[in-house]
């Protein structure tokens, strides 16, 4: 771990301001991914701004019927919140399917969104990786790719986003609220928050340097039967091969977002118009531009079959 200076921020604006004045700094909250990467010097900030003390750990009901989730709400608390369990069940389920109890106790809402990929080549600093070292090449392509992306991939990167929570939030049309170093704030729809790798896989979100996530908001509950189905080899404590976040309404319409297959939570709203016709047409549209490798081509039928199982369960 590279030496760094450390300070605690007193407010969100103060944190963004501090970050603006210290190039190369990072915010630290749960630390469960950042410290992991700092130990390997994949992340090497020279300054850490500890935001744990900020007043961003509340879940508030909004006048419009939605929920505002503070950036520092721990995954455990968000999953256990009775409003989330009742009205946004897929979010609770997605959180509970992720990581371990210990990690969920530390990991925050904002940090979860900002998790970096689990591509093993990204994690091995001896290996070329465009995400870690822009321009060095992608050693995953042509290598061990079983876990890696099948859609939205580029010749520069086939990594996936590892979050479960973000997949559910994508299906729920969440919005990410931020504050910037100049104290201005903005709200970014989650669909636009994560980026595809393209030629710049090291740029993973639309956040600007120093920009701090303050909250994630969920619109008014949409009802329906909600599912988060995570498929993995090991029964727990494993990243998804494929995951499906879905809501199915009594009339058979609904929404689907898919995890484990792309650089971001994968959702194509147009595909959902086919929900009444079953999983196959939905999956076909979701995966129309898929470019799998031999080792991860199984994810295509897996998405369809998992979605089919979810839809079948919704009918019961």
């Amino acid at each position: 771990m590279k030496p760094f200076t450390y300070e605690r921020a007193s407010s969100a604006a103060d944190a963004a301001d501090k970050a603006g004045r210290a190039p190369g700094s990072k915010f630290i909250a749960g630390g469960t991914n950042l410290l992991d990467l700092m130990k390997l010097q994949i992340e090497a900030p020279n300054h850490l701004i500890d935001i744990n003390g900020l007043d961003l750990d509340k879940i508030e009901s909004m006048p419009d019927g939605g929920l505002r989730i503070g950036a520092l709400v721990r995954n455990t608390d968000l999953a256990a919140d009775m409003r989330v369990r009742r009205d946004y069940a897929m979010l609770s389920r997605a959180l509970l399917a992720g990581a371990s109890g210990q990690l969920r106790n530390k990991a925050t809402t904002a940090g979860n969104l900002l998790q970096r990929t689990r591509c093993p080549y990204f994690y091995d600093t001896n290996m070329p990786c465009n995400k870690r070292q822009p321009g060095s090449g992608c050693s995953a392509i042509g290598g061990y790719t079983r876990q890696l992306g099948v859609v939205g991939v580029s010749d520069a990167c086939i990594a996936t986003h590892p979050s479960d929570m973000a997949v559910a939030m994508r299906a729920l049309d969440a919005t990410v609220e931020t504050v910037r170093a100049d104290k201005s704030s903005r709200a970014v729809p989650i669909a636009e928050f994560h980026r595809l790798p393209g030629d710049t896989p090291h740029i993973e979100t639309v956040l600007e340097p120093g920009e701090l996530i303050t909250a994630v908001t969920l619109p008014k509950a949409i009802g329906g039967k909600q599912y988060y189905r995570k498929v993995r080899d090991r029964a727990s404590y494993a990243f998804a091969l494929v995951s499906i976040a879905a809501v199915v309404q009594p009339d058979g319409s609904g929404r689907v977002a898919v995890g484990g297959i792309a650089h971001k939570p994968w959702r194509i709203e147009a595909a959902e118009t086919n929900m009444l016709r079953g999983a196959k047409p939905v999956a076909e549209q979701l995966l129309a531009d898929a470019r799998p490798t031999r080792a991860n081509a199984f994810k295509l039928p897996l998405v369809e079959r998992t979605l089919a199982a979810v839809l079948a369960e919704a009918r019961t």
């Binding site: 090449g137 991939v153 580029s154 470019r291 295509l300």
Partner: peptide
């Protein structure tokens, strides 16, 4: 739907 990205490093 099945074109492999750059099947391997030469």
């Amino acid at each position: 739907m099945s074109k492999e990205p750059d099947a391997g490093l030469s």
